[in-house]
Simulated scan of single mutants.
Amino acid sequence: MRFYFDIRDGDEFTEDDAGVELPDLNAARLQATIALTEMARDYLPRNGDERRLAIHVRTDEGPQLDVTLDYELEHLRKQERS
């Protein structure tokens, strides 16, 4: 079965028009989870204190699942200024 992995990075959306053949939805879930953790390693936290990354998995039949990562950095103490 062909699965498509659309990527959302905040307000940016990239549609997968090629897809990949995988045996089942479990394999697609694993593929999306691995891809999302690699995205997190590359993009977090250097671009601010908040970020939402998501991979939307679909087939020709429609949406199948979403894998989402929300990142938020909360400062608990005020930073000293020099």
Rank of each mutant, 00 (worst) to 15 (best):
M1Y: 13
M1G: 15
M1E: 02
R2P: 08
R2T: 09
Y4R: 00
Y4G: 05
Y4W: 00
F5H: 10
D6E: 01
D6R: 13
D6L: 14
I7V: 15
I7N: 03
R8P: 12
R8L: 03
R8W: 03
D11V: 02
D11H: 05
D11F: 01
E12N: 03
E12C: 00
E12S: 09
F13I: 04
F13N: 01
T14H: 11
E15Q: 06
E15R: 13
E15G: 15
D16I: 08
D16L: 04
D17W: 07
D17S: 14
D17V: 02
A18P: 11
A18F: 13
A18W: 06
V20D: 14
E21T: 15
E21H: 11
E21N: 13
E21S: 05
E21A: 12
P23S: 09
D24I: 12
L25V: 08
L25P: 09
L25F: 09
A27L: 01
A27N: 06
A27V: 08
A28F: 08
A28C: 05
A28S: 06
A28W: 03
R29L: 13
R29E: 13
R29Q: 11
R29S: 13
L30D: 13
Q31I: 02
I34S: 02
I34R: 04
A35W: 15
A35E: 15
A35I: 02
A35R: 15
A35V: 12
L36D: 01
L36M: 04
T37H: 09
T37S: 08
T37Y: 04
T37I: 03
T37W: 09
T37Q: 08
E38Q: 13
E38R: 08
M39L: 15
A40T: 09
A40D: 14
A40C: 01
R41H: 13
Y43W: 06
L44W: 01
L44T: 08
P45S: 09
P45A: 12
P45H: 01
R46E: 11
R46A: 09
N47T: 10
N47P: 03
N47E: 09
N47F: 15
G48M: 06
G48V: 05
G48N: 07
G48K: 04
E50N: 09
R51L: 02
R52P: 02
L53P: 07
L53Q: 01
L53M: 05
A54S: 11
I55P: 02
H56T: 06
V57Q: 01
R58W: 10
R58S: 11
R58T: 13
T59A: 14
T59H: 05
D60C: 08
D60P: 06
D60H: 05
E61G: 06
G62H: 03
G62T: 08
G62I: 11
P63E: 11
P63Y: 02
P63R: 12
L65D: 09
L65A: 03
D66I: 06
D66G: 08
V67L: 00
T68Y: 00
D70A: 04
Y71F: 15
E72T: 06
E74I: 07
H75R: 11
H75F: 08
H75T: 05
L76P: 00
R77M: 11
R77Q: 10
R77I: 01
R77P: 00
K78P: 04
K78W: 10
K78Q: 14
E80G: 03
E80P: 05
R81Y: 06
S82A: 15
